[in-house]
């Protein structure tokens, strides 16, 4: 306990002595972790939207206006017998028009002005959760349905969801690469700042070595200095991220919810915040240790 107190009091004094360099290191770490946090917030919310959209993804089987009752029955039996649907629902032409008017009240008068009802009847099929990833089976089902008498078209939401997922995955990889690079830059900056501190404390280190101070005592302050810089950088990043997030949510939150049809935007969960904070400290610790282990 006394040793820890010594490490951190020396580290604080050293940071204060070289405060300009320390601020630079803290800001570098903060930038790195801010970018990481930004990607995490983006990913968390995109993932939620994609997941919600996936949940409601449907396969729509549009029917010809002249489809017979027998053809409707065949289509219904085909869907029921496929084993892929968790729920199916027949939407008549009239019901489709009514839904359109309900969803788009501004355009209701336009639809009314048309000579007939342009909306086709359809079967809306909700796929079972466990078969959503089985693209082969679903594709085969879509092909089979498309060829059935009375069927005008089959529309499957999954295709663009797959594309959206690919975009999200790509963003995650790009974010990961940027974050790794920034983390390396942050660790190197910390190492340089701690190296400066080591140079300015050369006499003290020499005296400690000559009196036979344990390695931990000689090296501890440098590691503590790195941890403090990393922790301060992470805290700064999280504060900036939270301020930016809540300001944006206040300004654009409602519009985003309306556009995506999802729940309100969320900030990082507490465990992720804790991991970011610890991550910053670990980065600083690594930077400090790299320098400290050279002190013999």
């Amino acid at each position: 306990m006394r040793a820890l107190q010594y490490f951190f009091s020396e580290a604080v004094a050293s940071l204060w002595r070289a405060r300009s360099a320390a601020v630079l290191a803290i800001v570098t770490i903060a930038v790195g972790l801010f970018v990481l946090g930004f990607f995490l917030v983006l990913n968390t919310n995109l993932q939620r939207v994609v997941s919600q959209w996936s949940e409601s993804a449907e396969l729509s089987v549009y029917l010809n206006d002249d489809a017979t009752a027998e053809q409707l029955k065949s289509v219904d039996e085909m869907v029921a017998g496929s084993g892929l649907s968790s729920r199916r629902h027949y939407l008549s032409k009239a019901a489709a028009l009514a839904r359109f008017k309900g969803d788009f009240p501004d355009l209701a008068s336009t639809a009314g002005a048309l000579s007939g009802n342009p909306f086709p009847a359809s079967f809306e099929v909700q796929l079972r959760t466990d078969v959503r990833g089985a693209t082969g089976a679903v594709d085969g089902f879509v092909t089979a349905m498309s060829g059935m008498p009375g069927v005008a078209d089959v529309h499957y939401d999954r295709e663009w969801l797959t594309r959206l997922n690919a975009v999200v995955r790509g963003m995650r990889i790009a974010g990961g690469v940027i974050v790794v690079m920034l983390a390396l830059a942050a660790a190197m900056t910390v190492a340089n700042v701690v190296r400066l501190a080591a140079a300015s404390r050369r006499d003290e280190i020499e005296i400690m070595q000559l009196v036979g101070a344990p390695f931990a005592y000689v090296r501890g302050p440098f590691v503590a200095e790195g941890i403090l810089q990393g922790g301060a950088g992470a805290l700064l990043a999280l504060l900036a991220l939270a301020a930016g997030f809540y300001a944006l949510r206040l300004r654009f939150g409602a519009a985003a919810v309306q556009a995506t049809g999802g729940d309100s935007l969320t900030f990082l969960p507490v465990p992720v915040v804790a991991i970011l904070l610890l991550g910053g400290m670990t980065l600083g610790c690594i930077g400090g240790y790299v320098v400290a282990r050279r002190v013999r």
């Binding site: 006499d203 003290e204 005296i207 070595q209 000559l210 009196v211 036979g212 101070a213 344990p214 390695f215």
Partner: peptide, 18 residues
């Protein structure tokens, strides 16, 4: 070496004070 140095005291011309 650390243990050995704890049994020594040293004084230099330039004092080596912090």
């Amino acid at each position: 070496v650390q243990a050995y140095r704890r049994s020594l005291g040293f004084v230099f011309q330039d004092f080596k004070l912090l």
